[in-house]
Design a protein around this nucleic acid. Structure first.
Lengths: 133, 133
DNA sequence: ATCTAATTGATAATGATTCTCATGAAGATT
DNA sequence: AATCTTCATGAGAATCATTATCAATTAGAT
């Protein structure tokens, strides 16, 4: 149970990325994040943004979804197991959870003889704000 | 309710792609499919494979998953709404369904004021066969 | 102040997917 | 079966997100 790959050094770049994530409640792509930082005067290499996000994701500090299967999007989240309800228009995100669904996923896997199971669940739709537009 | 973009012409290429999909019960990427066809002596342009898959997906004739968020994978499926239980090792796939989960997804979206909701649910694990390896 | 390995930045490389456009062939029409 | 129109194909270039490379920096320890 040792953490094998914790980040070793503190850099202002890492802090800046984490800060930017904290400021936004919704999912952002690496590129959007990079742009935000850039506009805020934080000149960070795109490569560094990617690396940092990748590391934080590996450590479970942020959540990742694959926006269509094209781009990855990242977001700071609570640590408990949960899923996301994302607006298809503005990417506004709500964390949701459903114990019954968790059980269903596990037992379904079991029934078919699958072990080490996990799941990906994502709900999407048009949020209240975007409906009025 | 007119079908706006039904494929207009029958070509041996389209038939070959559909055939290859039918021969495999599990998810395949466009590239894998192209390779399979190539090895079977069916010389089809990779671009055509992509185009064909894209069309079939748009028509709902095949299902798509985004293998990690990297590659897309395609599979011939039954037409009813269902989800997939996929082996992380060999990609063996089982179609599953859970009415309760469907209801949960819809009502969760409703509760948060989201309309036009949909969902992506995928369960993964190690299938019985791969466990023995 | 010095040392050393992790981190960064700039850019090249990769890899999947899409686009372009000239050529080929379905399917309809004589 | 010859012709015509238009969509489909093939080959390769283009795109775009992400990753790799590698020399130059720098965090943290000594």
């Amino acid at each position: 149970m040792t953490e094998p790959s914790a980040p070793q050094r503190q850099t202002w770049q890492r802090a800046a990325v984490l800060d930017a994530l904290d400021r936004h409640r919704d999912f952002l792509t690496a590129q959007q994040l990079h742009q935000q930082l850039d506009e805020a005067g934080q000149k960070i290499s795109l490569a560094t943004v990617y690396r940092t996000l990748q590391q934080m994701a590996a450590l479970g500090e942020i959540d990742v979804i694959s926006d269509d299967g094209k781009q990855m999007a990242f977001r700071r989240c609570s640590s408990e197991h949960h899923h996301h309800l994302v607006c298809t228009e503005c990417a506004r995100t709500v964390e949701v959870s459903g114990p019954a669904v968790e059980r269903w996923a596990v037992s379904t896997a079991d029934e078919h003889g699958f072990t080490h199971s996990g799941h990906r669940i994502e709900i999407y739709g048009l949020c209240a704000t975007c409906q009025q537009r």
